[in-house]
Simulated assay, not measured.
Amino acid sequence: MDFLQEQSVETTVAVAVAVAAVAAGGAFLLLRSRKPKGCLDPENFRKFKLVEKKQISHNVARFKFALPTPTSVLGLPIGQHISCRGQDATGEEVIKPYTPTTLDSDLGYFELVIKMYPQGRMSHHFREMKVGDYLSVKGPKGRFKYHVGQVRAFGMLAGGSGITPMFQVARAILENPNDNTKVHLIYANVTYEDILLKDELDDMAKTYPGRFKIYYVLNQCFYLCSLLRTGTVVLGLCLRK
């Protein structure tokens, strides 16, 4: 009788341990399958701290903003943008849309590449920002959302600072191992120096030669020749005013 009782107790303990292990494993898989909650609010502005400001050219800078934790994600669907709020030179409020160059795979931060125009109202705000300042952001915004397999090939046309939304979508497509979409991007600028994210775009073309093609268009022959000397693919002829 004592032997049977001991066997019963051992069996009960073994079953309990097995159930606990299954429950723990299920909880772990559930947590892994859940997408982290984004930090954006579509109705209210939230503030994010500027942790790095890097000048790329005389009028372009890269701004890196910290999210609440090192594992936080911005929560911006591919193809959408955010609204940024600031003050112009007169102190009046100004709101303008921007598209981050980072994705939700970049944990703990997001980045904006901003071209600052002399008379731009929001440009003034970014030009005056210093590390430690906060930017008010609201989103997501926009009607377009990209989904894997939505199209077989993407044809993109961008000019100047309009490259950022194209860069966001192209990067999301190319970095997704489950997405076979091809991307062809025509990018127009006035001069060679005006080309934003050129190193990143060229790296993408080298990394994904069968899926990403970039064509640069300039409207000054001098800079067109400069591009040709570097071996960069250029589409079309020089445009004259």
Rank of each mutant, 00 (worst) to 15 (best):
A66N: 02
V9N: 09
E92R: 13
K145D: 00
P70Y: 01
K141T: 10
K64I: 04
L135S: 05
T181A: 13
R143N: 15
C225Q: 15
L74Y: 08
G108M: 01
R143T: 00
H58W: 12
V137D: 09
A16V: 11
E6W: 03
V13S: 01
P70N: 03
S136T: 00
C225L: 14
F154A: 14
R34E: 10
K130A: 00
H147G: 04
H124L: 13
T99C: 10
P42A: 04
D2M: 11
F144M: 04
V113I: 12
P177L: 11
L196A: 05
V19F: 11
H147V: 10
L157F: 09
E111H: 09
T191N: 14
F126G: 05
L228E: 15
C84D: 07
Q7H: 02
L76Y: 08
Q7S: 00
I114M: 10
K138W: 01
D106M: 04
I163L: 03
E193G: 04
M122C: 06
T181P: 10
G38Y: 07
N219D: 15
K35G: 05
P77G: 05
T164G: 11
R46G: 09
D106W: 03
I186H: 01
D199G: 06
A170M: 05
Q220H: 15
T181S: 13
C238H: 02
M129P: 02
A158M: 08
R127N: 08
F63I: 06
N178I: 01
D133L: 05
E52T: 08
E93H: 12
S72F: 05
Q220R: 15
V113P: 02
R152D: 15
A205S: 10
T181W: 09
V19Y: 14
K53V: 12
D106T: 10
K198D: 01
L103F: 14
S136I: 03
K37M: 12
L107Y: 06
V9I: 14
E10R: 12
V113G: 04
G155L: 15
N180V: 14
Y117P: 09
H124F: 15
L50R: 05
I95L: 07
L224M: 13
S57V: 10
N176A: 02
R143Y: 04
R127M: 11
I214T: 12
M166Q: 12
G236D: 08
K213W: 12
C221M: 12
P70L: 09
Y187G: 15
K54T: 15
P68A: 04
T12L: 07
V233G: 08
T71M: 13
V190I: 04
L74C: 09
M156T: 01
V22S: 15
R152H: 05
N180Q: 09
K53H: 10
P77T: 03
V94H: 01
Y187H: 07
F212L: 07
S8K: 12
S8E: 11
D203N: 00
T207I: 00
P97F: 02
D199T: 11
A61I: 05
Y208F: 09
G162F: 08
A27N: 14
L103S: 13
E200P: 06
P97L: 04
A27Q: 14
T191Q: 10
A153D: 07
R32I: 14
K64L: 03
A153V: 02
V94C: 13
D88Q: 07
Q7W: 06
A172M: 00
T181L: 08
P68L: 04
I173A: 02
P68E: 11
